[in-house]
Structures are given as C-alpha cells and as structure tokens.
Design a protein around this nucleic acid. Structure first.
Lengths: 205, 205
DNA sequence: TGTACATCAGTGAACGCGCGTTCACTGATGTAC
DNA sequence: TGTACATCAGTGAACGCGCGTTCACTGATGTAC
C-alpha cells in the first residue's frame, strides 16, 4: 500500500483513472471534474495542480488510451505474422478486445469530442494506433490483383467502421437493445464475409 | 405566419424541434431543458405543460425520429422491389441518408441512452423501423443456398453495424478526424464487398 | 545529526452560474346561454 | 351579439444543488549547511 497522508503520492494517475471510470459510467459530457476529485479523495481545487482543467483531464485519459490501443494493435499485428491474413484478423479482434476491456478509454478517445489534434503528442500516438490497421490492410491488399484492388485506406476504413459499429450497438449494454449474437462472433463473421468478398479467403472457408 | 401572443399555439412541437437541434449541437448529455425552452421563446416552467420533464422531451424526439426513420426505410425497401438485392441496397443508402439529414433525431435515438422500452409506443415504432432492415436481409438471404446461409438477423446486424460505424466515424465531423472518402461511397463499397462475400453479387461486378 | 528554509501539493472558502423542478399566479381563449 | 365563467397555457419568482475555477492559505517534504 502506498503511503497516505497530506500528500497523495500518485494523485495525477488516480485522477485520470477516476475520470475514465466516470466517463464510462456517465458518458463524456456527464463526467464532472468535481466527482473525479472526490473519487480520488481530494478537493476539486487539487486537480489544478496537475491539469489545466476539465478538458485537459479527459485528453490525458484519451492519450493513455491511444497508447494502450496502439500497443495492443501492434502486438496483435505481429502475432499474426508472417501471414498477412492472420495478422489482419488479429487486429480486428484486438480492436474489439480493447473496446471491451477499456471502455472508459474508448469513450474518451472516440466519443468525447476531444480533437486528436489537441496536442502534438496526442496526434502522434493516435496516428501510430491508426497506422497499424492501415498497415495490416495494406499488407493484405497486396494479395489482390492490382487492377481490382481497393485503396488500402478504404479497406481499413471499412473494417474500422464495422468494428466501431459492433462496439457501439452490440458490445455496449445499450438499454433495451439486446444483442442478437455475441459481439465477438458478429465481428468475426462480418470480417470473414467481407474478406471473402475481396477474394482473400476461400469461398467455402 | 402563426399567431403570436400569450399562447404559443404550437409549443409542444417547437420544444421538440429546439431540443433536437440542441442535442445535435451539444450532445445528448449536454442538452438542457432550459435552453430548449429559451430557444422556443418560453419560460422553462412552460415545458412542464407538455412534457413530464427533461427525459420525456428527449424520448419524444427519439420517437419522432423512429417514425421518420421507419417511413424512409419502408419507402426505400419498396422502391427496390421486386429485386431483393436492389431493395436491400436501397435500405442501406436510406440509413445513411437519414443519419445525415436528421442528425438530432439520430443522436436522440441511438446515443442518448433513452431505452427503446421506455414506452410501448416507442418500442413499437422502433421495432417497425428495425423490422424493415431485417425483412430486406431475409428476402436477400433466400438467394443463398440454405446450408451456407447465415441467419438473416446476423446479416442485418452486420449491415447495421457497418452503417452505424460509417455514420459515427466518417459522416459526423469528428474534430481532427478527416474522412478518407465520402461516407456514401464508403458505405456503398463496403456493402458491395460484403454482398460479394455472400455470393449475392457477381465477383466482377 | 540537527536546524533553517525553500518548494511543493494539498485545503477550504468563496465566486458566479445555470441547472431541473415546484408553485401560486394571471392573461387569453372558448363555450353556454 | 353580448356577457359570465370555466378551462387552459403561459409567467415569474423561488428552491436547493452541483458545477468549474480562483485564491490565499498551510501542512508536509526535501535539501543545504
């Protein structure tokens, strides 16, 4: 157990963690700085020792999310190598796994309205994360005859949209909207059909 | 011009319209009853003559959205008949068109946290809307050999997720996240590849 | 080892604000005769 | 057509609340000598 007393010791991270939990719970606009401070056991004013304000706190959470996200995507990508197909499918699974394991981060990143260009650091790490998916799509599209090959960025946008849609509609417990299938299965099968459409997997697979 | 004076004449609808505009502008949790009242030129207290409160106002907006949505989807479905394929593609286009034309309604319906089971009327109209997409998917899946035919509900969930993802990521002007392609093109091409994967369109189409 | 002092990370009170909701009220409208 | 009256749809003041942010402050920590 860390030391307790007048000085918290690790307040900055404690505030970010609290914020992410609350964002998950109450949504990006429902989150309040005061509640995060309270949850960290500290006065609202103390937050200003570590952050410029409310927005800055959210942005820090998003930034940490992008870092975890990029690491996970890179790991997944590498784990599927040297097969371009396996690498691609692994990144798709990693996307959903991230959204389910780190919902607060996910919301801060994609639903909070924080601009990815808020700071150069944030832009850079977001770019790294998105780059993995595009790389995986690019590798894979090499296996398609050049004349009927869609741009890799379109390819990755399709998969990103499908993944995001599955997360938002079926992986979150939207009140009153029951998922017809487990989200993992839905995403896996959707990507499978899509890849078949591109001629990248066996029609009978 | 409608009569002006002490009595508004059409306050209920004016409040709903104001609410939907504000929801589009500030997000579902950022929306306030007071601001909607102000925008309709009326005291906040007047809202309570027509709605039970803040939530009820949002729910009414969502309900009207589902009605428009269901009508549009039905019209699109019929416009593609008797070709199951054309009908299906038309519903996909209608989905995106709705999201772009009625963003406030869309957000109230899918992002506000309002449960679809809030009232029987809301549940009913939501069911009607979703039913069209499922019907279109079901028609289409009749053209797939029964032994390799995915359940129609999975089929429609895939398309719904893809559409929703395109809307959220690329049709909304997410700050700092530029769309690589026009959303319409992205959705159309994505659905095309998906249908090819199901063996429903010509591989060289 | 002990002391003086600078630095740091918190407190707590205060601010102005807008929120959702309630209440008794009043002005406008519509209907009965 | 004119008048009395019930109904209806607004007002405006008030409530208690929590918000983000600021400020002067103080207690704890760490360092120089």
């Amino acid at each position: 157990m860390p030391k307790r007393g007048y000085h918290h010791g690790n307040l900055k991270q404690a505030l970010i963690d609290a914020a992410l939990e609350l964002i998950e719970l109450r949504g990006p606009t429902g989150f309040t700085l005061s509640e995060a401070a309270k949850q960290a056991g500290v006065t609202p004013a103390a937050v200003y020792r570590h952050f410029e304000g409310r927005e800055d706190l959210i942005a820090e959470g998003a930034m940490q999310g992008y870092e975890i996200f990029a690491d996970l995507m890179e790991f997944a990508y590498k784990s599927g190598q040297p097969s371009a197909l396996k690498a691609f499918e692994a990144t798709g699974r990693a996307y959903l796994a991230f959204a389910r394991k780190y919902p607060g981060h996910y919301i801060a990143m994609f639903e909070s309205g924080i601009s990815v260009n808020r700071t150069p650091e944030l832009a850079s790490v977001a770019h790294r994360a998105n780059g993995v998916l595009e790389q995986a799509a690019d590798d894979l599209s090499q296996h398609i005859p050049a004349d009927k090959r869609p741009p890799a960025s379109m390819f990755s946008a399709h998969i990103w949209a499908l993944s995001h849609g599955v997360v938002e509609l079926f992986a979150r417990n939207s009140p009153g909207r029951a998922s017809p299938f487990p989200p993992e299965e839905l995403l896996e099968s959707g990507i499978g059909i899509y890849l078949r459409g591109l001629g990248l997997v066996d029609p009978d697979g």
